[in-house]
Write a protein that binds this DNA or RNA. Sequence first.
DNA 1: AAAAAAATTTAGACTAACCTAAAAATATAT
DNA 2: ATATATTTTTAGGTTAGTCTAAATTTTTTT
Lengths: 220, 220
Amino acid sequence: MQNSFTEENYLKIIHALSGREGVEVSTNALAESTATRAASVTDMLRKLAEKGLIHYKKYQGVRLTGAGEKVAISVIRKHRLWEVFLVEKLGFGWDEVHEIAEELEHIPSDELVERLDAFLGHPRFDPHGDPIPDAKGNLTDPDYLILTDVNVGEKVLMMGVLDHAPSFLQHLDRSGITLGSVLEITEINEYDKSASVRINGTNTLFISLEVSKNLLVQRR
Amino acid sequence: MQNSFTEENYLKIIHALSGREGVEVSTNALAESTATRAASVTDMLRKLAEKGLIHYKKYQGVRLTGAGEKVAISVIRKHRLWEVFLVEKLGFGWDEVHEIAEELEHIPSDELVERLDAFLGHPRFDPHGDPIPDAKGNLTDPDYLILTDVNVGEKVLMMGVLDHAPSFLQHLDRSGITLGSVLEITEINEYDKSASVRINGTNTLFISLEVSKNLLVQRR
DNA sequence: AAAAAAATTTAGACTAACCTAAAAATATAT
DNA sequence: ATATATTTTTAGGTTAGTCTAAATTTTTTT
């Protein structure tokens, strides 16, 4: 049978929280992320376990099964493809698309997803630099660095963000940092780890540790 | 406050069933169209009346209020714009888009609808020839004829369909009848009212009364 | 105009997804 | 290792939208 909007959201969030290594996710963490109470999460976990979508033992946390991961990745694929559509075709800003994609990601129809993918030219990354799983559900995480791991003097390419909050993305817009920008760390302040960064070899600006922590980059 | 998916569907269906003159819609008709039971409809009508979206007096049938009509037309606008998107941009057939648009029509965000409209070039009609309400909610029904009202010898333009069933649309595809085709009635069979129709001045085919009844056309 | 039929509403129940409060299990601190 | 704190689960309840069966109202027929 079909999975509900809510079930899909739980699976997506479990996927996000269990990270690359597939660690167990706690009930409280899920309550936080779903904006519900722990008791509600417990109810849903029993249900998802019965459907064979998660591994769940009382008090032991939760992990996706193969079937659950398949659903989660399909939702992520749809979310990211719709984000590309909203930005590339409809002209939304990268800070405006998350909420709308949260709705669109639950529209069923494999045909729709595959045609959308083709219409968009089979994009590999969404507007925030997150990789788009392919139709078979292969999601290969590019191994980006966080800007805090880059040394003074190094030049890196801006490839993505960890924080997707509109306020953060708007801050990057105002700073002139976009996907593909070349960033060169010219100085790191010992005291607060803030940095001076030259962007595309031209203007230099200060960025706080808070910002550095949320920028994904790649050595060239 | 917001209207639910289900509430929007009731309003859309009341709109469709009450026709141009805004006649009262019966509980049973709504039960039929929503694929629920009359008792469920009654519950929903009480709720919609409380929200000021319908005029409802027990046993008297139901009519949209101004507010209700606004919601219904907004849903119709979204449905038809998404259908244009699916056909024009994603290459779906006109027989394949109804179900998907039934889902997409409930995605909220005025910004999304207006950008989609612009992206599509402000289309006036959907792939079935139905008029698309404008952003202000103006829905002007073009006064099309039904093919049964056309006489032998007349040439008309095929402008739309009344039946949206995939099987009917596929039948038209196989017959080579598309929006914009020029139809000339060359003969009407007295016995069963079936007709011979020349399409675009070339090939002629027989169409049954059942088909004629569902073709919307315009004199030129 | 009374009886019969049809349509509609009410009454009472169910499921999904949520809640609060209390109980139980696990983890942490002394 | 016991006491305390935290996390998680259970118990019991709520709302939206649905259901069936019974009661009521309206319509149709005789």
